[in-house]
Design a protein around this nucleic acid. Structure first.
Lengths: 203, 203
DNA sequence: ACTGCCTTTTACTAATTAGTAGCTTTTTTT
DNA sequence: AAAAAAAGCTACTAATTAGTAAAAGGCAGT
């Protein structure tokens, strides 16, 4: 780690603290959502003082946006790491699985389902928008490729399929299955995968 | 309206005002969610003063819960009005369509998708819980009947199907289709129906 | 060991919100 | 027309939150 060795201990501690803040924020966003999460919560969860928190992020909005950016980077990175020979449909399924597992481990869906207000807030950040666009383009390509391959129905518009896909990553059914149905993560993921691709009807 | 004629003008006005408050709250809950909606918002939207608002409902929580109860009553009433000869699957589809249309007209999904906090709040009200349970029982019956009739797959647990069904009533894909895709209400409803029953895969 | 930098602590500002008190005005009832 | 009831208005309380200032303390770097 030659780059790390060039950083002073102080700088390293700053970086580690920053990650701790992002982790804490992720957890709080997942459990409380943006509106109910407070900066006092974040500071407490991260184990630093609130004024120090503002050394890392200039506002609550900035902090939440950075969390989402980190997550989108994770999704893009996951897609990059997939086997190039994988079919479009398999890639879609795999990324959905990744997203659901992240969620089940206390993480966040990569697009927020909740409020127009949160969406508007995030959209004010160019770095966020860039990544969403990038992910969207890749997913669009995957859907188009799957359609061409006859794997995915072409009587539904691509954007409709994408909207549904995004929605599955933040689907509350996941929470219900976990909290009320006490299903295992594997079962939840499998059920979700079944339902998005083949629906609930018998043929 | 023999019942209404027994009410003084005052009482009638009170009732009308109460409905206006519930309508205003529905609209605000749909656009801002519970946390961001303020009682000042509601009073303003309903055209009454905030102190008067508290003549009708004792708290913000009480108000939101009554809105949800009214909605659930609507759903139960809709189910009651369906043709008795309708198959389980058709009933499911029809209620989903109703719920989606209510939403598209500015209403609310009949189960909130958002926060555990809102869910916990609603669950504190026995009248709400009773209706949810009632609706759940009916839906469960419909799914079981559809399974027995070979209309709905029986390799998915009934509760998983129900969780997915509830989730479709509050699916953000609806908002995306409307706001970004500019699809008509009819198209949105049709797409949603297709996707829940037969999924996005081709066979 | 000493110094300087950074974090923590304490206290704060400004704004917002749920909910309420008391007086005035309006409307309905008698 | 007069009285009563209810709504509106104004002002408020108490609590909370995002964000900040200043002093004190701690720790890393030299």
């Amino acid at each position: 780690m030659s780059i790390l060795s060039k950083l002073s201990f102080k700088d390293q501690a700053f970086k580690l603290r920053e990650q701790a803040v992002l982790d804490a924020t992720t957890k709080l966003l997942a459990s409380k959502g943006f509106d109910l999460m407070t900066m006092d919560d974040v500071a407490g969860e991260a184990g630093i003082s609130k004024p120090s928190l503002y050394k890392h992020f200039k506002s609550k909005e900035d902090l939440a946006t950075e969390v989402m950016i980190r997550l989108l980077d994770g999704a893009l990175e996951y897609l990059d790491g997939l086997d190039a020979g994988m079919s479009g449909k398999e890639r879609l399924g795999s990324l959905l699985e990744w997203a659901l597992r992240v969620r089940l481990q206390g993480g966040l869906p990569f697009l927020p389902s909740s409020s127009p207000q949160v969406r508007a807030m995030l959209t004010r950040n160019i770095r966020y928008v860039t990544r969403v666009y990038q992910l969207h383009k890749q997913l669009q390509g995957m859907v188009d490729k799957s359609k061409a391959a006859g794997e995915i129905r072409d009587d539904l518009p691509t954007d409709v399929i994408l909207y549904a896909y995004y929605s599955r990553t933040c689907d509350p059914a996941v929470d219900y299955m976990k909290d009320y149905g006490h299903y295992s993560d594997d079962d939840i993921v499998a059920h979700m995968r079944t339902m998005i691709f083949t629906g609930i009807a018998k043929d």
